[in-house]
Structures are given as structure tokens and as C-alpha cells.
Nucleic acid binder design. Structure first.
Length: 713
DNA sequence: GACCTGCTGCGGTATG
């Protein structure tokens, strides 16, 4: 039977009313499978290929709408995505008379209350809201979610490999436990690595044997153009902005400049260029520090603009599936940190059927040009970074221990241990380890033993009873930026944030009038000229594969017709610079340059391995400067032989770094900042987190075992 | 110089 005929009549009517000519390939396949089986499915296909419908059309066809209780739980990483999907799903559900409820921190309380009175239909939720319910109203979890048929997880790649992902995995397991039957899961994604035949992905959904992947890899034509404009100052070159302006002034475009400060610079300066020549004024900026209402306006403007052109300068806030309508072109300024990110960004353009995507890649620095080129070539080879799921997520365990205890109002050690060890998210953590962590949490008053049962301790109450408890990620302190009662966005406190400084924010220029440290508020007024704002953060890690590709480009003589003349010239120059070594293998050979007083070692490997190598060198007394963007170490020439022998002879498997890592934690407690809950673990588990999440000793060892120094002649 | 993500429950007051 055709997929269309497998659907229930109301759904068929919906499709007819939408005037769809046909179902998309991913929809055809998903409908056949989901209707026929109770397997879990992962639907992988590019942005705007109708994945949401591919999941909901068959699920709703199967669903017994007359039954009481919530039947489908949709989980999303973003509130904005929930609001977006709500409208689509609700329109579909009108045909079935099935209610749809949004349940997140900004959703209406009234709608939530109505759901509690009569639980039914579909609920759209965030992992954090689900967590909050487990902690504060565990009976509500039973009341609402014990009769689920399906859980749908949107943009699942955004969860994989992160603490937030382990958190979600744990919540899914806890949810399955309270369910009277067994729910199936359908996960949606545009980009997932197919390493080990999707083993990590299948594990994530909790039932690998009954989890199937449906994938549509129909390629989409993409026109890429590389342009190189070497930057002389900290500002973006004017020629680059002029070029970008001319190419995009007559279209709908997204620009990704990688950092919030640069996002503002691009928006403000392009707007000025446009003003000067009488072009359109629809230049916006969109990132986490732009006020929410301003961002919603920008999204609304983009969605509603059928004839009007616009240009949104943005960070990864516009990378995920929020539907902002048709975009003609995407510009990327300097290299993306990952291929996955590049795929998402490219996918945002040419969303109209049959229309090619346009991509402008700009580079302002030679190493960035090389990395950008490497990313593009890997993208063409359909490479995606592998998923690194945390094998022993002790920090997420701490959080979930507190959550389970708080939600239980008294629980025995046996029950608590069983709850955690029985949870697949923690399957590699032993019962002994769980007990040891419980003992530690008791010792620091996070837990308290009351007779045979554990409850939350005095110190634990302080963290469990705050809004901040529900997330697995840290958030820095920001000051609200306000102009005459209107909120514009937010800024961190820095040398720049003081009265009379002029800054860009939300694509406009402001003068700082006053700073209220108590209220964490910055009062501003419009100004004519200013500087880009400063934000602080950690650069994202770059994968080893990208660095290897960069070296491969340097030792090849391949010509790239998509490179402009200056870019081509720069690559030629870099190849010439590296020709002095005579490198043969981009996998094992690494350049070592001996200068007059400096030794330069180009490792061409991932950020985590570089960080580990730098740590080991420091540990054995070899001072070194790591230049991450060039994957280069600089060392005093007098240490040359020592350096070579350390790297050649060291076998990291035989060395115990625990003492060194303990010292590191003592001297620089901030190294653990990547983990929000890690600081509450016994020191030996903090060390384990450092070893696997901040450093990569296994990867570093493998790198060193294969390393072949090639010295300059 | 360096991305992003989310948030309870209660008590108060204003509004229809």
C-alpha cells in the first residue's frame, strides 16, 4: 500500500488541504515503517525536508485519540523551536481534534493547568522543564506521562556528545520507568555521524536492537565561492564588507561571523554602507545577548518578508531548525569550528524546492582560510565529526542523584543506587562508584541520612531549590542594557563597559550613560559611532580530522576553482612555506622547525590533544606556547633534544598523571568550569572528568605513537 | 579574541 493510503482519513484530508503534490522521500519511508512497527526510528535528512511531518503524520494516524492521557511527548532543545513547531502541529491536530500543549518556562500557566485537569493529546517540552517536573512534582509526571505512546526528539544531534544529552538520556529512562506500557521514540536530525553504524545514536534511545535509522541523503546543489581579504587590524577589512554588501544587497541573506562582537560589527557596518547608497535598512543582528523580543521581531520579519530583502548577522542561534522562511544566500566569515555546523548553516539557504544554495566563504587570516578550505572539502566528502558520548558522566550523575532524592522525599540507599545504576545513561558507572559518590555528597551535606533513608542535606537544599538547578550548563553573569525603559540586550562586565563608551548592540550604536552595579543594569542612549562589544568565552574545540585535512591541503598541489585570486595566492604561499620539510603523510608526518632561538612544532591535530600535549610538556618542565588556531607549539631552542626525546619516547599509558591533575585542580580550580556539577564530586572523579573531557590522554598517546618529526632542511 | 542552550513556586499587585 502507498504511504498516503496508510494514513488515517483526517490526516489524508490535511494533506489534500495543504495541496502537497506528493510526500517527500523521508515521509514516504517513515510513514511505512512507523505505522507498521513499534520500533524506535531516527529520521535523518536535510533541513526543510519535512521531518516533523514525517514523524507526526504516521504517529497521529496510529494514535487512539479517544484515550485519556498524554499520548505524544515532543522534546526540543529550544523554546523558540517549540513555539515554531506548536503552530505547525496544532494546525495538523485540528483535523483530529487533538489538543496540543506547550510546556516550557515561558509557556502559559493557564494552558498547563488545563492539561493537568484533563491530560490528553500532545505536549511539547524542553528537557529542563521535564527535569523541573521530576524534581518538584513527581506525581505530575505519573499523572501526565504514564500513558505515552511516542516520544519525539527534535534536533537530536544538538544533544549528542554533551552533558545536556546525557541529562536527556537519563530523563528518557526515568520516563520509560513510570510509563505503564512502553513508549517508542522517533528522533529527528539533519546531521549525525554514521560512525559504528550509528551505535551511539541507537544507544542513546535506550533500545539499540529496536532502533532503526531512516536516512535521505539526496544531495543539494551548492555554489560555493571563497574570498580572501587579509585583515590588517582587529576590525573586519572594509573591502570584505563592501564585497559582502554588493553580493547580498538584493537578496535575503544570513551572515555567520562566528562571534557575537563580530556579528554586531557586521550588522552595523553593513547597515551604514547600505544607508550611504540608499539601499534597504533591514540589517539585523541575532545572538544570545540580543534581547528576546528584538530577536523574535527579527525572526518574524524574516518569515513575513516575501518581497522585502533583509540581512541577518547571527551566531548559531539561527543554526537550528527555527523556520525563518526562505533565505537566498548564506555567508560565512572565517572557518566554522565543525563540519556539522557548516552543514546546518549551508542548509539554511535556498530552501525553496529545486533552488540551489549559495554560500560565500570569506577568510581574513591565512590559517582561517586553510581551515575553512579543509572544512569545505570534508563537507564535500560528507564527513561529520564523530560523536563523543561521555562514558562515565559522573557530573550528570551528581545532578540526577540530587534530582531523584529531591523527587522522592526519602529514599533508601539500595533503591537510590538501583535507580541510578539501572539507568542506561550511567551504565558504565559501577554500584561501588555510585555509593562512593553518595557518601561524598553526604559528607558535604548535599545529602543527609535520616534513619534508613536519604533526603536532601542543608547544603543540597541551597542548590536544589534554585532556578539554576534544572540545567547542566553554566551561565555567566550579564548586565541588562536598557534605553529609556526599553531592553536592548545584555553585556558582560568588562573594561569596555563604563560611562561614555560607545558600543554596538542589536545592530545599533549606543552610548553608555550609567551603570547600576546593584541592579546589574546599563543605561544607554543612541549614538552615532562606536565599537563592537566584547564577550568572553572559550573557543570551541576543533576536531583532529580537520587539522589533518589542513596539512593534506598543504602537501597537495590540487587547484581549487572556487578560490579567488588572493586566496589562491595565499594557499600557494603557505604550500611554499611548508615545502621545506618534504612531508609525505598528512597522517603521521609533522613539521618541526628549528629557528635561531625558537623551535616551532606544527602538530596538525585536534584541540583536546594539543591541550593534553601542552600539559604534559609543562609537567616535564618544557615551557611551551600553544597557538591553537595554527595548531603550533613554540619552545625555546635550548630544549630541542629534550622536547624530541619526550615526544618520541613517552608512553602515556605507563604514566600516572593523577598527582599532576590534582595539583592542576588545586592551583587552577577554573579548569573544571566545563562541568557545572563536577565540583561536587570527590577529587578522584574530578580527575576522571578532566582526563576524558578536558584532556584526551588516549588520543594524545595514539598521536605520539604515530608521530614522525620532519625537520626543515 | 573566543557559540549555544533553560528556569519553580509563591506572594504580591493590577486588570477585566
Amino acid at each position: 500500500m502507498s504511504a498516503f493510503n496508510l494514513l488515517s482519513e483526517p490526516i489524508r484530508k490535511y494533506i489534500r488541504d495543504q495541496k502537497w503534490e506528493s510526500l517527500r522521500p523521508i515521509q514516504e519511508a517513515a510513514i511505512q515503517k512507523i505505522i507498521a512497527t513499534d520500533n524506535n526510528y531516527v529520521l535523518i535528512s536535510r533541513t526543510a525536508s519535512g521531518k516533523t511531518e514525517a514523524a507526526f503524520l504516521p504517529i497521529l494516524s496510529k494514535m487512539n485519540c479517544k484515550e485519556k492521557g498524554v499520548k505524544v511527548l515532543y522534546i526540543s532543545p529550544l523554546i523558540a523551536l517549540i513555539n515554531d513547531q506548536f503552530m505547525r502541529v496544532e494546525k495538523l491536530c485540528e483535523y483530529l481534534d487533538v489538543p496540543v500543549t506547550k510546556w516550557h518556562g515561558e509557556a502559559s500557566k493557564g494552558a498547563k493547568d488545563r492539561l493537568i485537569k484533563a491530560p490528553e493529546g500532545i505536549v511539547l517540552i524542553t528537557p529542563e522543564s521535564l527535569e523541573a517536573m521530576f524534581v518538584n512534582k513527581p506525581y505530575q509526571i505519573h499523572h501526565l506521562f504514564s500513558t505515552l505512546d511516542y516520544v519525539v526528539i527534535d534536533e537530536i544531534h544538538s544533544f549528542l556528545g554533551s552533558d545536556r544529552g546525557i541529562h536527556l538520556q537519563s530523563l528518557l529512562q526515568r520516563l520509560q520507568k513510570v510509563n505503564t506500557g512502553k513508549f517508542s521514540t522517533v528522533a529527528l536530525s539533519a546531521t549525525v555521524s554514521d560512525q559504528n553504524n550509528y551505535a551511539e545514536l541507537k544507544d542513546f534511545l535506550g533500545d539499540p536492537e529496536h532502533t532503526k535509522v531512516i536516512r535521505d541523503t539526496t544531495p543539494k546543489p551548492i555554489n560555493a565561492v571563497f574570498k580572501y581579504f587579509e585583515g590588517q587590524t582587529k576590525e573586519l577589512p572594509l573591502d570584505l564588507l563592501k564585497d559582502l554588501y554588493i553580493r547580498t544587497r538584493d537578496s535575503k541573506v544570513l551572515v555567520f561571523p562566528n562571534a557575537r562582537g563580530k556579528v554586531e560589527e557586521v550588522a552595523v557596518r553593513l547597515k551604514k554602507l547600505s544607508e550611504r547608497v540608499g539601499g534597504h535598512a533591514n540589517y539585523f543582528s541575532h545572538h544570545s545577548s540580543v534581547d528576546k523580543e528584538v530577536r523574535e521581531y527579527v525572526e518574524f520579519f524574516a518569515k513575513k518578508s516575501t518581497h522585502e530583502n533583509f540581512c541577518i548577522s547571527c551566531t548559531s542561534t539561527l543554526e537550528l531548525g527555527i523556520d525563518i522562511g526562505n533565505v537566498d544566500e548564506v555567508a560565512q566569515i572565517d572557518a566554522t569550528h565543525s563540519i556539522a555546523s557548516l552543514i546546518q548553516r549551508v542548509g539554511r539557504s535556498g530552501r525553496r524546492e529545486g533552488k540551489a544554495s549559495n554560500l560565500f566563504l570569506y577568510a581574513t587570516e591565512r590559517w582561517s582560510l586553510l581551515q575553512s578550505l579543509a572544512c569545505w572539502l570534508l563537507f564535500k566528502e560528507q564527513y561529520i565529526e564523530p560523536i563523543a558520548m561521555s562514558q562515565k558522566p559522573y557530573d550528570v550523575l551528581v545532578h540526577q542523584l540530587l534530582s531523584v532524592v529531591k523527587g522522592s522525599s526519602g529514599i533508601t540507599l539500595d533503591k537510590l543506587t538501583e535507580d541510578l545504576t539501572g539507568n542506561a545513561a550511567f551504565k558504565n558507572i559501577s554500584a561501588e562508584e555510585v555509593t562512593e559518590i553518595i557518601d561524598h555528597l553526604t559528607a558535604i551535606d548535599f545529602l543527609e541520612k535520616l534513619g534508613p533513608e536519604y533526603i536532601i542535606g542543608i547544603e543540597g537544599e541551597k542548590v536544589v531549590n534554585t532556578r539554576d538547578f534544572y540545567t547542566l550548563f553554566h551561565t555567566p553573569v550579564f548586565f541588562r542594557v536598557v534605553s529609556q525603559g526599553v531592553k536592548i540586550g545584555e553585556l558582560p562586565l568588562s573594561a569596555q563597559t563604563r560611562p561614555d563608551e560607545n558600543i554596538y548592540l542589536s545592530a545599533r550604536i549606543w552610548k553608555i550613560k550609567d551603570i547600576d552595579y546593584e541592579a546589574k543594569k546599563i543605561e544607554v542612549a543612541p549614538a552615532k559611532d562606536g565599537k563592537k562589544p566584547l564577550f568572553f568565552g572559550d573557543a570551541a574545540d576543533t576536531a583532529s580530522k580537520i587539522r589533518e585535512k589542513m596539512l593534506e591541503i598543504l602537501i597537495s598541489d590540487q587547484k581549487y576553482d572556487f578560490l579567488d585570486e588572493p586566496g589562491d595566492e595565499m594557499i600557494r604561499q603557505m604550500r611554499k612555506d611548508f615545502s621545506i620539510y618534504g612531508i609525505r603523510s598528512h597522517q603521521t608526518d609533522r613539521p618541526l622547525f628549528s629557528g635561531n632561538d625558537k623551535l616551532k612544532f606544527y602538530s596538525f591535530t585536534g584541540s583536546k590533544i594539543n591541550r593534553t600535549l601542552s600539559f604534559i610538556l609543562n609537567r616535564v618542565g618544557i615551557e611551551n606556547q600553544l597557538h591553537e588556531s595554527e595548531s603550533k607549539f613554540e619552545i625555546d631552542f635550548s630544549k630541542k633534544s629534550e622536547f624530541i626525546s619526550v615526544l618520541k619516547d613517552v608512553n602515556l599509558n605507563t604514566i600516572n598523571f593523577d598527582e599532576a591533575l590534582t595539583e592542576l585542580l588545586d592551583n587552577f580550580p577554573d579548569v573544571l568550569n566545563f562541568s557545572k556539577w563536577g565540583e561536587f564530586l570527590p577529587i578522584k572523579y574530578q580527575i576522571e572528568l578532566l582526563k576524558h573531557r578536558y584532556f584526551d590522554f588516549e588520543g594524545c598517546n595514539e598521536f605520539l605513537q604515530n608521530l614522525n618529526f620532519i625537520e626543515n632542511k
